[in-house]
């Protein structure tokens, strides 16, 4: 039981525990922050698997994203504090069944497939970052450019969907008053 195995198991367990806590709590802000800590545990898991850049990036991005999700929950949901314990779930047994079946299927694939030879040595983090950078701007340049344009398009689309339409003033009459023209 090496240290790496222990850390991966610990952070993995933390991530799953916080993930279950997202749907078990009644308070909406607690739910959003539980998801935040689940993603942070995942980022720590990436760090313990020596994917340093990805781990740091995951920790950084997910904190911001989940905080924004928290404020959207406070804006849109009926009971953000969770003091009234109302159960807002539909098709409970079907979704529980679907969740368990998909978990068992994925575990089955993980256990019964022969994944081939396992390499236990990972490259140095500085080397990884350099290699990732070269890959990003070399072989995967098209993917990244497409991702960039997709981000820009989705930003403009989201803003144009969410923006409040400017109230059109009524047509001013010759006398200069704003009477409503029927």
């Amino acid at each position: 039981m090496t240290a790496q195995m222990f850390f991966i198991a610990f952070f993995g367990l933390a991530a799953v525990w916080f993930g279950i806590a997202v749907f078990r709590t009644y308070s909406m802000v607690r739910s959003a922050l539980a998801l935040l800590f689940s993603q942070t545990a995942l980022g720590a898991m990436f760090l313990s698997m020596q994917a340093e850049f990805l781990g740091v990036l995951q920790i950084m991005m997910m904190a911001t994203e989940m905080s924004i999700m928290a404020i959207f929950m406070v804006m849109f949901m009926m009971d953000p504090g969770g003091l009234s314990t109302m159960d807002m779930i539909h098709q409970k047994r079907l979704s529980l069944l679907a969740g368990i079946v998909s978990f068992l299927a994925a575990v089955g694939v993980a256990v019964f497939v022969d994944w081939g030879p396992v390499e236990m040595i990972a490259p140095d983090p500085a080397q990884q970052t350099i290699a990732l950078g070269l890959e990003l701007l070399g072989r995967s340049m098209l993917i990244f450019e497409t991702a960039g344009i997709t981000i820009l398009t989705s930003m403009i689309a989201a803003i144009s969907v969410a923006i409040q339409p400017v109230k059109q003033n009524t047509v001013p009459t010759i006398t200069g008053s704003n009477h409503h023209e029927h």
Binding site: I20, S38, M88, S95, L96, A98, G99, A106
Partner: peptide
Amino acid sequence: LIALITGAALFGVGIYGALSQTNLVM
């Protein structure tokens, strides 16, 4: 194996959440 089982568990919890919740944010 540990990492794959964690991924499978998160996937299962996510499917449960996405199918059972009524609110868009959830």
